[in-house]
């Protein structure tokens, strides 16, 4: 697989480490009333869809940036690659 890095261009997926579902960007509020339940969901439950999946890849053998890759889990086709930083900011994470 080739991952079209937004800064570096197409790179071999073997340069990257896979983390998992991009929802992991949204760490729950530890002060919430139901923080325990939220963290259980966050830590252990996944949508695991057959089809389009937004997921985190880390460019460990490259510029060490985190990416959000949109990939079809039934074909491995990658349709979108974004910097995780941009995604997190757009979705309301401040840092």
């Amino acid at each position: 697989m080739l991952i079209d890095h937004p800064i570096l261009g197409p790179r071999d997926a073997a340069e990257f480490v896979y983390k998992g579902d991009a929802m992991l960007i949204h760490r729950p509020d530890w002060q919430a009333e139901d923080a325990v339940a939220q963290f259980t969901d966050y830590g252990y439950l996944r949508d695991n869809p057959a089809g389009l999946h937004r997921e985190l890849w880390f460019h460990e053998q490259g510029d060490r940036s985190w990416l959000v890759v949109t990939r079809d889990t039934t074909t491995h086709e990658i349709t979108k690659v974004e910097l995780a930083r941009d995604v997190a900011r757009a979705e309301g994470r401040s840092r």
């Binding site: 998992g20 969901d41 439950l45 996944r46 949508d47 695991n48 057959a50 889990t73």
Partner: peptide, 18 residues
């Protein structure tokens, strides 16, 4: 292998990745 796909039909999310 397909547990998440099937159990989603019962409204369940699983501690599983395929």
């Amino acid at each position: 292998g397909s547990s998440s796909r099937l159990m989603e039909k019962a409204g369940m999310r699983l501690p599983i990745e395929s």
